[in-house]
């Protein structure tokens, strides 16, 4: 009996040296770098609780954020929601391999990206999209359906290598007259505005710009980005099943989110009344 107790205690003591792993939750990096532009679009934030509204954003303001290019470190400073580089000695060019290292307390996350080459040969099939004044009437649905097919421009670019591209269109000046009259159902606007977005980053060389997908008249810019795989992966996010959770797409090591670089070209067009 005595022997068994001694052996048991000995084994128990040895066993108690085991530690149960307990790690802090990972934080999120949302970092975009644009060729030829200043580095000023890096966000660092905590995840929010599953049972909290998804509109919340918990920015981390005291992270140590360093961008590394060719072994040279460029410390970024927090300013109005983003970490930015305020020096003048950093030039981001196509082909650069960039590394981002973020330290929050004792948590360290990192990610790498390569700046792609800019989109080439970008053209647009016209400079004006004619959209007549929309009036609430019985024939409105038919009119909108007609405009959907007739009021269009096509942006196209060279893509012999079938690289990934993504297009973003926005008004050049913030305030323009609205396409839609007062009282037009918001659900209708939301439905139509879906057509101004590229569904995801694709290996394409054209994009149809549909007049009634926009909310305002005036000058707009279509910016075509050549993007990396990590950005395209953002759209590969299957619906979550609580029995078998899916790790969200991310190129951040020991963290969530994305760090990616882009190069782009732009064309302009005007949406005008008939």
């Amino acid at each position: 009996m005595k022997q068994s107790l001694i052996i048991s205690l000995f084994l128990l003591l040895g066993y108690s040296c085991n530690q149960i792993d307990d790690t802090d939750p990972k934080f999120v990096i949302e970092g975009f770098i644009f060729a030829g532009e200043r580095v000023e679009d890096i966000k660092v934030k905590e995840q929010i609780g599953i049972d909290e509204p998804d509109s919340l954003d918990r920015l981390i303001r005291d992270a140590v954020v360093v961008l590394i290019k060719e072994g040279q470190e460029y410390p970024l400073q927090y300013d109005e929601g983003n970490y930015k580089y305020f020096g003048s000695n950093l030039l981001v060019e196509s082909g650069d391999l960039l590394r981002l290292e973020v330290t929050v307390g004792d948590r360290i996350a990192s990610a790498e990206t390569i700046v792609p080459a800019a989109t080439e040969g970008l053209t647009i099939s016209g400079t004006e999209l004619i959209v007549p004044e929309i009036i609430l009437s019985f024939g409105l649905v038919n009119k909108l359906a007609e405009l959907f097919f007739t009021s269009r421009l096509t942006a196209s670019w060279d893509n012999p290598g079938e690289d990934l591209h993504f297009i973003a269109i926005e008004p050049v000046v913030a305030e323009y007259d609205s396409l839609f009259p007062t009282g037009f159902p918001q659900e209708g606007k939301d439905f139509l505005s879906g057509f101004k977005f590229a569904p995801q980053a694709l290996e394409v060389d054209t994009f149809s710009i549909i007049g009634i997908a926009f909310e305002t008249y005036g000058r707009h810019r279509a910016k075509v980005y050549r993007v990396n795989q990590e950005y395209a992966d953002l759209f590969n996010n299957p619906e979550q099943d609580s029995r078998d959770l899916t790790v969200p797409p991310s190129n951040v090591v020991n963290g969530f989110g994305i760090f990616s670089a882009f190069a782009s070209d732009s064309v302009f067009f005007d949406i005008v009344r008939e």
Binding site: P25, V28, E30, F32, K45, E46, Q47, I48, G49, I50, E52, D54, D57, F166, I167, A168, I169, E170, K196, F197, A198, K223, Y225, L234, F256, G257, I258, F262
Partner: peptide
């Protein structure tokens, strides 16, 4: 937890 990423558009 959950988080969001703002796209280019």
């Amino acid at each position: 937890g959950q988080y969001s990423v703002e796209l280019l558009d």
